[in-house]
Design a protein around this nucleic acid. Structure first.
Lengths: 241, 241
DNA sequence: TAGTGGTCTAGACCACTAC
DNA sequence: TAGTGGTCTAGACCACTAT
Protein backbone atom coordinates (compact mmCIF):
# COMPACT_ATOMS: atom_id res chain seq x y z
CA UNK A 1 0.00 0.00 0.00
CA UNK A 2 1.52 3.30 -1.04
CA UNK A 3 0.77 6.21 1.19
CA UNK A 4 -1.57 8.72 -0.40
CA UNK A 5 -0.06 11.64 1.46
CA UNK A 6 3.45 12.65 0.47
CA UNK A 7 3.70 16.12 2.00
CA UNK A 8 2.38 17.13 5.39
CA UNK A 9 0.91 20.49 6.46
CA UNK A 10 -2.26 20.00 4.45
CA UNK A 11 -4.12 22.32 6.76
CA UNK A 12 -1.63 25.08 5.97
CA UNK A 13 -2.02 24.48 2.26
CA UNK A 14 -5.78 24.59 2.53
CA UNK A 15 -5.56 27.79 4.56
CA UNK A 16 -3.33 29.37 1.93
CA UNK A 17 -5.67 28.21 -0.80
CA UNK A 18 -8.61 29.82 0.97
CA UNK A 19 -6.76 33.06 1.68
CA UNK A 20 -5.66 33.22 -1.93
CA UNK A 21 -9.25 32.80 -3.07
CA UNK A 22 -10.41 35.54 -0.74
CA UNK A 23 -7.63 37.89 -1.88
CA UNK A 24 -8.51 37.31 -5.50
CA UNK A 25 -12.25 37.65 -4.79
CA UNK A 26 -13.07 34.10 -5.81
CA UNK A 27 -14.89 34.14 -2.48
CA UNK A 28 -16.46 37.56 -2.17
CA UNK A 29 -16.83 39.70 0.91
CA UNK A 30 -19.94 38.90 2.97
CA UNK A 31 -20.38 35.69 1.00
CA UNK A 32 -19.78 32.13 2.13
CA UNK A 33 -16.71 30.07 1.49
CA UNK A 34 -17.42 26.41 0.65
CA UNK A 35 -18.73 24.37 3.55
CA UNK A 36 -16.44 22.17 5.61
CA UNK A 37 -17.83 19.03 4.04
CA UNK A 38 -17.45 20.52 0.59
CA UNK A 39 -13.77 21.28 1.28
CA UNK A 40 -13.27 17.79 2.70
CA UNK A 41 -14.45 16.30 -0.58
CA UNK A 42 -12.49 18.84 -2.62
CA UNK A 43 -9.16 18.12 -0.89
CA UNK A 44 -9.96 14.55 0.04
CA UNK A 45 -9.05 15.06 3.68
CA UNK A 46 -10.68 14.60 7.02
CA UNK A 47 -13.02 17.28 8.25
CA UNK A 48 -10.71 17.96 11.18
CA UNK A 49 -7.98 19.11 8.82
CA UNK A 50 -10.34 21.50 7.08
CA UNK A 51 -11.45 22.84 10.43
CA UNK A 52 -7.81 23.47 11.38
CA UNK A 53 -7.39 25.52 8.22
CA UNK A 54 -10.55 27.49 8.86
CA UNK A 55 -9.53 28.11 12.47
CA UNK A 56 -6.39 29.71 11.11
CA UNK A 57 -8.34 32.02 8.82
CA UNK A 58 -10.68 32.90 11.65
CA UNK A 59 -7.77 33.80 13.91
CA UNK A 60 -6.23 35.95 11.23
CA UNK A 61 -9.52 37.75 10.79
CA UNK A 62 -10.36 36.60 7.27
CA UNK A 63 -13.62 34.82 7.97
CA UNK A 64 -16.31 34.41 10.60
CA UNK A 65 -18.02 31.01 10.87
CA UNK A 66 -21.69 31.05 11.85
CA UNK A 67 -23.21 27.91 13.22
CA UNK A 68 -25.86 26.47 10.98
CA UNK A 69 -25.27 29.02 8.26
CA UNK A 70 -21.75 28.86 6.91
CA UNK A 71 -18.40 30.60 7.01
CA UNK A 72 -18.50 34.19 5.78
CA UNK A 73 -15.69 36.32 4.36
CA UNK A 74 -15.10 39.39 6.51
CA UNK A 75 -15.22 42.89 5.20
CA UNK A 76 -11.90 44.52 6.05
CA UNK A 77 -12.64 48.23 6.19
CA UNK A 78 -10.23 50.91 5.13
CA UNK A 79 -8.92 52.28 8.41
CA UNK A 80 -10.30 55.60 9.60
CA UNK A 81 -7.66 58.23 10.19
CA UNK A 82 -7.67 59.64 13.69
CA UNK A 83 -5.59 62.77 14.18
CA UNK A 84 -3.99 62.93 17.58
CA UNK A 85 -3.20 66.45 18.69
CA UNK A 86 -3.68 68.59 21.75
CA UNK A 87 -7.17 69.69 20.74
CA UNK A 88 -8.73 66.96 18.60
CA UNK A 89 -11.68 64.97 19.95
CA UNK A 90 -13.40 61.88 18.64
CA UNK A 91 -16.47 63.67 17.30
CA UNK A 92 -14.51 66.41 15.59
CA UNK A 93 -12.18 63.90 14.04
CA UNK A 94 -15.01 61.87 12.59
CA UNK A 95 -16.93 64.88 11.40
CA UNK A 96 -13.91 66.32 9.64
CA UNK A 97 -13.79 63.09 7.66
CA UNK A 98 -17.50 63.07 7.03
CA UNK A 99 -17.97 59.78 8.82
CA UNK A 100 -21.24 58.84 10.46
CA UNK A 101 -20.56 58.20 14.16
CA UNK A 102 -22.27 57.63 17.49
CA UNK A 103 -21.41 57.18 21.16
CA UNK A 104 -23.14 55.10 23.80
CA UNK A 105 -22.60 55.30 27.54
CA UNK A 106 -22.27 51.69 28.65
CA UNK A 107 -22.12 52.42 32.36
CA UNK A 108 -20.72 54.80 34.93
CA UNK A 109 -19.62 54.73 38.54
CA UNK A 110 -18.70 57.27 41.19
CA UNK A 111 -16.19 56.25 43.81
CA UNK A 112 -12.57 55.99 44.83
CA UNK A 113 -9.96 55.83 42.05
CA UNK A 114 -7.57 53.00 41.40
CA UNK A 115 -3.96 53.69 42.29
CA UNK A 116 -3.11 54.25 38.61
CA UNK A 117 -5.96 56.72 38.18
CA UNK A 118 -4.97 58.49 41.38
CA UNK A 119 -1.42 58.82 40.18
CA UNK A 120 -2.28 60.01 36.68
CA UNK A 121 -4.76 62.60 37.94
CA UNK A 122 -2.59 63.60 40.94
CA UNK A 123 -5.56 63.23 43.29
CA UNK A 124 -5.76 64.00 46.99
CA UNK A 125 -6.47 61.26 49.51
CA UNK A 126 -10.12 60.14 49.46
CA UNK A 127 -10.94 62.27 46.43
CA UNK A 128 -13.64 60.56 44.40
CA UNK A 129 -13.89 60.16 40.64
CA UNK A 130 -16.48 59.63 37.95
CA UNK A 131 -15.61 56.67 35.76
CA UNK A 132 -17.43 56.29 32.43
CA UNK A 133 -17.35 53.48 29.91
CA UNK A 134 -18.21 54.64 26.43
CA UNK A 135 -18.70 52.55 23.31
CA UNK A 136 -18.22 54.40 20.04
CA UNK A 137 -19.54 53.47 16.62
CA UNK A 138 -18.62 54.35 13.08
CA UNK A 139 -21.20 53.56 10.43
CA UNK A 140 -23.15 51.65 13.11
CA UNK A 141 -20.20 49.36 13.76
CA UNK A 142 -18.46 49.41 17.15
CA UNK A 143 -14.94 50.77 16.88
CA UNK A 144 -13.71 51.55 20.38
CA UNK A 145 -14.34 51.25 24.08
CA UNK A 146 -13.09 54.06 26.26
CA UNK A 147 -12.84 54.11 30.02
CA UNK A 148 -12.50 57.70 31.11
CA UNK A 149 -12.06 59.11 34.58
CA UNK A 150 -12.63 62.61 35.98
CA UNK A 151 -12.11 63.95 39.49
CA UNK A 152 -15.59 64.40 40.97
CA UNK A 153 -14.65 67.91 42.10
CA UNK A 154 -14.14 69.05 38.51
CA UNK A 155 -17.48 67.82 37.22
CA UNK A 156 -19.90 67.81 40.18
CA UNK A 157 -23.17 65.99 39.53
CA UNK A 158 -21.93 64.82 36.15
CA UNK A 159 -24.45 62.00 36.17
CA UNK A 160 -27.33 64.48 36.06
CA UNK A 161 -26.49 65.01 32.40
CA UNK A 162 -26.38 61.40 31.26
CA UNK A 163 -29.95 61.05 30.09
CA UNK A 164 -29.89 61.14 26.32
CA UNK A 165 -26.08 60.84 26.30
CA UNK A 166 -24.64 61.87 22.98
CA UNK A 167 -21.19 63.37 23.31
CA UNK A 168 -19.03 63.49 26.42
CA UNK A 169 -17.34 66.68 25.33
CA UNK A 170 -20.68 68.22 24.56
CA UNK A 171 -21.69 67.72 28.18
CA UNK A 172 -18.41 69.09 29.50
CA UNK A 173 -18.62 72.16 27.32
CA UNK A 174 -22.31 72.84 27.87
CA UNK A 175 -22.52 72.30 31.62
CA UNK A 176 -19.02 73.00 32.85
CA UNK A 177 -17.60 75.29 30.18
CA UNK A 178 -14.72 72.82 30.09
CA UNK A 179 -12.57 71.98 27.09
CA UNK A 180 -9.89 69.48 28.11
CA UNK A 181 -6.56 69.61 26.30
CA UNK A 182 -4.56 66.50 25.46
CA UNK A 183 -1.32 66.48 27.39
CA UNK A 184 0.13 63.10 26.43
CA UNK A 185 -0.90 59.77 24.95
CA UNK A 186 0.69 56.35 24.91
CA UNK A 187 -0.29 53.60 22.53
CA UNK A 188 0.33 49.91 22.42
CA UNK A 189 -0.94 46.97 20.42
CA UNK A 190 -2.47 44.06 22.27
CA UNK A 191 -5.12 41.40 22.07
CA UNK A 192 -8.48 42.41 23.46
CA UNK A 193 -9.87 41.21 26.76
CA UNK A 194 -12.74 38.82 26.24
CA UNK A 195 -15.34 41.39 27.32
CA UNK A 196 -13.95 44.02 24.94
CA UNK A 197 -13.85 41.55 22.07
CA UNK A 198 -17.53 40.86 22.56
CA UNK A 199 -18.46 44.54 22.67
CA UNK A 200 -16.35 45.30 19.61
CA UNK A 201 -17.77 42.23 17.86
CA UNK A 202 -14.38 40.90 16.90
CA UNK A 203 -12.73 37.54 17.59
CA UNK A 204 -10.30 37.49 20.49
CA UNK A 205 -7.43 37.19 18.07
CA UNK A 206 -7.93 40.52 16.32
CA UNK A 207 -5.57 43.13 17.79
CA UNK A 208 -6.62 46.39 19.37
CA UNK A 209 -4.65 49.55 19.98
CA UNK A 210 -4.74 50.64 23.57
CA UNK A 211 -4.45 54.41 23.84
CA UNK A 212 -3.95 55.97 27.26
CA UNK A 213 -4.38 59.72 27.37
CA UNK A 214 -4.04 62.42 29.94
CA UNK A 215 -6.08 65.55 29.36
CA UNK A 216 -5.41 68.83 31.10
CA UNK A 217 -7.53 71.68 32.27
CA UNK A 218 -6.73 74.77 30.19
CA UNK A 219 -4.84 76.07 33.22
CA UNK A 220 -2.53 73.09 33.05
CA UNK A 221 -3.40 70.44 35.62
CA UNK A 222 -4.75 66.97 34.68
CA UNK A 223 -8.52 66.51 34.78
CA UNK A 224 -9.13 63.44 32.66
CA UNK A 225 -7.45 60.08 32.31
CA UNK A 226 -8.75 57.77 29.62
CA UNK A 227 -7.93 54.33 28.28
CA UNK A 228 -9.33 53.55 24.85
CA UNK A 229 -9.27 50.15 23.18
CA UNK A 230 -9.69 50.61 19.47
CA UNK A 231 -10.13 48.02 16.74
CA UNK A 232 -6.74 47.81 15.09
CA UNK A 233 -8.08 47.10 11.63
CA UNK A 234 -10.47 50.06 11.55
CA UNK A 235 -8.24 52.75 12.90
CA UNK A 236 -5.05 54.51 12.02
CA UNK A 237 -3.70 57.20 14.26
CA UNK A 238 -1.80 60.22 12.98
CA UNK A 239 0.56 62.42 14.96
CA UNK A 240 2.08 65.48 13.44
CA UNK A 241 5.14 67.25 14.79
CA UNK B 1 -26.23 4.66 29.91
CA UNK B 2 -25.91 8.14 31.40
CA UNK B 3 -23.78 10.56 29.48
CA UNK B 4 -20.51 11.34 31.21
CA UNK B 5 -20.36 14.85 29.78
CA UNK B 6 -22.96 17.28 31.05
CA UNK B 7 -21.47 20.60 30.00
CA UNK B 8 -19.69 21.26 26.72
CA UNK B 9 -16.79 23.63 26.06
CA UNK B 10 -14.30 21.47 27.92
CA UNK B 11 -11.48 22.91 25.87
CA UNK B 12 -12.39 26.40 27.06
CA UNK B 13 -12.46 25.22 30.66
CA UNK B 14 -9.08 23.61 30.29
CA UNK B 15 -7.71 26.76 28.66
CA UNK B 16 -9.02 28.87 31.54
CA UNK B 17 -7.57 26.42 34.05
CA UNK B 18 -4.17 26.67 32.39
CA UNK B 19 -4.27 30.47 32.14
CA UNK B 20 -5.27 30.67 35.78
CA UNK B 21 -2.35 28.50 36.76
CA UNK B 22 0.03 30.64 34.72
CA UNK B 23 -1.35 33.85 36.23
CA UNK B 24 -0.96 32.49 39.73
CA UNK B 25 2.53 31.14 38.96
CA UNK B 26 1.59 27.51 39.50
CA UNK B 27 3.30 27.11 36.14
CA UNK B 28 6.29 29.41 36.22
CA UNK B 29 7.73 31.48 33.40
CA UNK B 30 10.16 29.58 31.17
CA UNK B 31 8.98 26.32 32.71
CA UNK B 32 6.83 23.61 31.17
CA UNK B 33 3.11 23.18 31.66
CA UNK B 34 2.01 19.53 32.03
CA UNK B 35 2.30 17.48 28.86
CA UNK B 36 -0.67 16.89 26.62
CA UNK B 37 -0.97 13.29 27.75
CA UNK B 38 -0.73 14.33 31.37
CA UNK B 39 -3.60 16.80 30.89
CA UNK B 40 -5.63 14.16 29.06
CA UNK B 41 -5.38 11.91 32.11
CA UNK B 42 -6.00 14.80 34.50
CA UNK B 43 -9.21 15.93 32.80
CA UNK B 44 -10.15 12.55 31.40
CA UNK B 45 -10.60 13.89 27.87
CA UNK B 46 -9.29 13.12 24.45
CA UNK B 47 -5.93 14.51 23.50
CA UNK B 48 -7.54 16.55 20.74
CA UNK B 49 -9.50 18.55 23.31
CA UNK B 50 -6.35 19.32 25.25
CA UNK B 51 -4.65 20.40 22.06
CA UNK B 52 -7.52 22.75 21.31
CA UNK B 53 -7.05 24.36 24.71
CA UNK B 54 -3.29 24.70 24.22
CA UNK B 55 -3.81 26.15 20.74
CA UNK B 56 -5.88 28.85 22.37
CA UNK B 57 -3.14 29.66 24.88
CA UNK B 58 -0.57 29.70 22.11
CA UNK B 59 -2.66 32.13 20.05
CA UNK B 60 -3.10 34.41 23.01
CA UNK B 61 0.65 34.39 23.58
CA UNK B 62 0.74 32.57 26.91
CA UNK B 63 2.82 29.55 25.91
CA UNK B 64 5.08 28.25 23.16
CA UNK B 65 5.02 24.51 22.41
CA UNK B 66 8.32 22.95 21.33
CA UNK B 67 8.23 19.66 19.54
CA UNK B 68 9.82 16.88 21.51
CA UNK B 69 10.39 19.08 24.56
CA UNK B 70 7.17 20.42 25.98
CA UNK B 71 5.06 23.51 26.21
CA UNK B 72 6.77 26.46 27.86
CA UNK B 73 5.24 29.46 29.60
CA UNK B 74 6.21 32.69 27.85
CA UNK B 75 7.93 35.55 29.54
CA UNK B 76 5.81 38.64 28.95
CA UNK B 77 8.24 41.55 29.18
CA UNK B 78 7.34 44.92 30.61
CA UNK B 79 6.97 47.11 27.55
CA UNK B 80 9.77 49.48 26.69
CA UNK B 81 8.70 53.11 26.49
CA UNK B 82 9.46 54.72 23.18
CA UNK B 83 9.15 58.51 23.11
CA UNK B 84 7.92 59.80 19.79
CA UNK B 85 8.91 63.39 19.11
CA UNK B 86 10.41 65.37 16.31
CA UNK B 87 13.99 64.59 17.31
CA UNK B 88 14.02 61.21 19.08
CA UNK B 89 15.70 58.24 17.42
CA UNK B 90 15.72 54.57 18.32
CA UNK B 91 19.23 54.52 19.74
CA UNK B 92 18.76 57.63 21.83
CA UNK B 93 15.47 56.36 23.15
CA UNK B 94 16.98 53.09 24.26
CA UNK B 95 20.05 54.67 25.73
CA UNK B 96 18.02 57.16 27.73
CA UNK B 97 16.36 54.17 29.35
CA UNK B 98 19.58 52.32 29.86
CA UNK B 99 18.50 49.42 27.68
CA UNK B 100 20.99 47.26 25.83
CA UNK B 101 20.18 47.46 22.12
CA UNK B 102 21.50 46.53 18.69
CA UNK B 103 20.62 46.95 15.01
CA UNK B 104 21.21 44.63 12.09
CA UNK B 105 20.94 45.49 8.40
CA UNK B 106 18.97 42.61 6.92
CA UNK B 107 19.26 43.75 3.30
CA UNK B 108 19.21 46.76 1.07
CA UNK B 109 18.30 47.66 -2.49
CA UNK B 110 18.75 50.60 -4.79
CA UNK B 111 16.12 51.22 -7.43
CA UNK B 112 12.84 52.80 -8.35
CA UNK B 113 10.39 53.60 -5.55
CA UNK B 114 6.91 52.18 -5.12
CA UNK B 115 4.10 54.61 -5.82
CA UNK B 116 3.52 55.06 -2.07
CA UNK B 117 7.19 55.82 -1.48
CA UNK B 118 7.25 58.20 -4.41
CA UNK B 119 4.26 60.04 -3.07
CA UNK B 120 5.49 60.27 0.50
CA UNK B 121 8.93 61.47 -0.53
CA UNK B 122 7.58 63.73 -3.32
CA UNK B 123 10.07 62.27 -5.79
CA UNK B 124 10.71 63.29 -9.38
CA UNK B 125 10.09 60.84 -12.21
CA UNK B 126 12.79 58.15 -12.42
CA UNK B 127 14.43 59.28 -9.20
CA UNK B 128 15.94 56.26 -7.47
CA UNK B 129 15.87 55.35 -3.78
CA UNK B 130 17.82 53.36 -1.24
CA UNK B 131 15.61 50.92 0.62
CA UNK B 132 16.94 49.35 3.81
CA UNK B 133 15.50 46.66 6.02
CA UNK B 134 16.72 46.87 9.59
CA UNK B 135 16.09 44.45 12.43
CA UNK B 136 16.46 45.92 15.93
CA UNK B 137 17.11 44.08 19.16
CA UNK B 138 16.63 44.88 22.81
CA UNK B 139 18.45 42.65 25.26
CA UNK B 140 19.34 40.38 22.34
CA UNK B 141 15.65 39.85 21.52
CA UNK B 142 14.25 41.11 18.21
CA UNK B 143 11.78 43.92 18.76
CA UNK B 144 11.17 45.58 15.41
CA UNK B 145 11.67 45.45 11.67
CA UNK B 146 11.94 48.74 9.85
CA UNK B 147 11.83 49.33 6.13
CA UNK B 148 13.27 52.75 5.48
CA UNK B 149 13.63 54.61 2.20
CA UNK B 150 15.83 57.55 1.17
CA UNK B 151 16.08 59.37 -2.14
CA UNK B 152 19.38 58.30 -3.67
CA UNK B 153 20.25 61.92 -4.37
CA UNK B 154 20.25 62.77 -0.67
CA UNK B 155 22.59 59.96 0.36
CA UNK B 156 24.78 59.15 -2.66
CA UNK B 157 26.78 55.93 -2.34
CA UNK B 158 25.04 55.12 0.93
CA UNK B 159 25.93 51.46 0.54
CA UNK B 160 29.61 52.24 0.81
CA UNK B 161 29.08 52.67 4.53
CA UNK B 162 27.22 49.45 5.26
CA UNK B 163 30.18 47.31 6.27
CA UNK B 164 30.07 46.97 10.03
CA UNK B 165 26.59 48.51 10.13
CA UNK B 166 25.71 49.74 13.58
CA UNK B 167 23.39 52.70 13.57
CA UNK B 168 21.64 54.20 10.56
CA UNK B 169 21.63 57.64 12.04
CA UNK B 170 25.26 57.33 12.91
CA UNK B 171 26.02 56.83 9.20
CA UNK B 172 23.82 59.75 8.15
CA UNK B 173 25.41 62.05 10.65
CA UNK B 174 29.00 60.98 10.05
CA UNK B 175 29.01 60.82 6.25
CA UNK B 176 26.29 63.23 5.23
CA UNK B 177 26.06 65.60 8.21
CA UNK B 178 22.36 64.79 8.11
CA UNK B 179 20.00 64.73 11.08
CA UNK B 180 16.46 63.95 9.85
CA UNK B 181 13.55 65.43 11.78
CA UNK B 182 10.29 63.56 12.34
CA UNK B 183 7.49 65.29 10.51
CA UNK B 184 4.60 62.90 11.13
CA UNK B 185 3.88 59.35 12.20
CA UNK B 186 0.87 57.09 11.92
CA UNK B 187 0.38 53.96 13.93
CA UNK B 188 -1.94 51.03 13.63
CA UNK B 189 -2.27 47.61 15.26
CA UNK B 190 -2.24 44.54 13.05
CA UNK B 191 -1.18 40.95 12.87
CA UNK B 192 2.30 40.41 11.48
CA UNK B 193 3.04 39.10 8.05
CA UNK B 194 4.43 35.59 8.20
CA UNK B 195 7.93 36.75 7.32
CA UNK B 196 7.93 39.42 10.03
CA UNK B 197 6.59 37.00 12.61
CA UNK B 198 9.52 34.71 11.91
CA UNK B 199 12.08 37.48 12.18
CA UNK B 200 10.51 38.80 15.38
CA UNK B 201 10.29 35.25 16.71
CA UNK B 202 6.63 35.56 17.63
CA UNK B 203 3.60 33.49 16.64
CA UNK B 204 1.51 34.95 13.85
CA UNK B 205 -1.23 35.72 16.33
CA UNK B 206 0.77 38.22 18.41
CA UNK B 207 -0.06 41.76 17.30
CA UNK B 208 2.43 44.32 16.06
CA UNK B 209 2.21 48.07 15.86
CA UNK B 210 2.90 49.39 12.42
CA UNK B 211 4.44 52.86 12.59
CA UNK B 212 4.83 54.84 9.37
CA UNK B 213 6.99 57.93 9.67
CA UNK B 214 8.02 60.75 7.44
CA UNK B 215 11.29 62.46 8.30
CA UNK B 216 12.28 65.82 6.98
CA UNK B 217 15.53 67.46 6.07
CA UNK B 218 16.26 70.29 8.51
CA UNK B 219 15.29 72.66 5.71
CA UNK B 220 11.82 71.14 5.62
CA UNK B 221 11.40 68.73 2.72
CA UNK B 222 10.93 64.96 3.21
CA UNK B 223 14.02 62.78 2.95
CA UNK B 224 13.04 59.56 4.69
CA UNK B 225 9.96 57.37 4.71
CA UNK B 226 9.97 54.43 7.08
CA UNK B 227 7.58 51.66 8.05
CA UNK B 228 8.34 49.92 11.33
CA UNK B 229 6.65 46.78 12.61
CA UNK B 230 7.14 46.56 16.34
CA UNK B 231 6.23 43.77 18.75
CA UNK B 232 3.11 45.00 20.47
CA UNK B 233 3.86 43.33 23.77
CA UNK B 234 7.36 44.80 24.13
CA UNK B 235 6.71 48.35 23.15
CA UNK B 236 4.69 51.29 24.32
CA UNK B 237 4.83 54.56 22.44
CA UNK B 238 4.55 57.94 24.13
CA UNK B 239 3.58 61.20 22.47
CA UNK B 240 3.66 64.45 24.38
CA UNK B 241 1.85 67.58 23.32
C1' DT C 1 14.03 3.87 23.92
C1' DA C 2 10.45 6.60 25.94
C1' DG C 3 8.22 10.86 25.97
C1' DT C 4 6.94 15.09 23.69
C1' DG C 5 4.34 17.79 20.43
C1' DG C 6 2.51 17.77 15.11
C1' DT C 7 -0.48 15.79 11.90
C1' DC C 8 -4.15 13.10 10.12
C1' DT C 9 -8.18 9.59 9.78
C1' DA C 10 -12.85 7.90 10.95
C1' DG C 11 -16.79 8.39 13.14
C1' DA C 12 -20.17 10.28 16.46
C1' DC C 13 -23.51 13.56 18.55
C1' DC C 14 -25.01 18.28 19.21
C1' DA C 15 -27.04 23.08 18.20
C1' DC C 16 -28.49 26.00 14.96
C1' DT C 17 -30.42 27.54 10.32
C1' DA C 18 -33.01 27.11 6.25
C1' DC C 19 -36.62 25.03 3.87
C1' DT D 1 -35.57 17.31 7.22
C1' DA D 2 -31.13 18.34 5.38
C1' DG D 3 -27.16 21.02 5.78
C1' DT D 4 -24.10 23.84 8.52
C1' DG D 5 -20.63 24.56 12.01
C1' DG D 6 -19.16 23.02 17.21
C1' DT D 7 -17.57 19.48 20.06
C1' DC D 8 -15.66 15.19 21.38
C1' DT D 9 -13.73 10.22 21.15
C1' DA D 10 -10.36 6.69 19.64
C1' DG D 11 -6.61 5.59 17.39
C1' DA D 12 -2.60 6.07 14.24
C1' DC D 13 1.95 7.60 12.47
C1' DC D 14 5.45 11.15 12.35
C1' DA D 15 9.50 14.27 13.90
C1' DC D 16 12.03 15.74 17.48
C1' DT D 17 14.29 15.59 22.24
C1' DA D 18 16.20 13.54 26.12
C1' DT D 19 18.45 9.60 28.27
Amino acid sequence: MTKLREEPLQHLEIAEYLIHNIRSSVYEVNQKIPSENELCRQFNVNRHVVRQAIARLTNLGWVTPLQGKGCYVNHIPKPILYVLSSHTRFSENMESQGVQHKSKLLNWTKGLPTSLEKEQLTLEENEEVYRLEILRFIDEKPISITTTVFPESEVPNLDMHFSDFQSLYGILLEHYQLRPIRSSSTFQASLPMMKDAELLEIPESIPVVQIESIMNHPSGYPIEFSVARVRGDMHKCLVEF
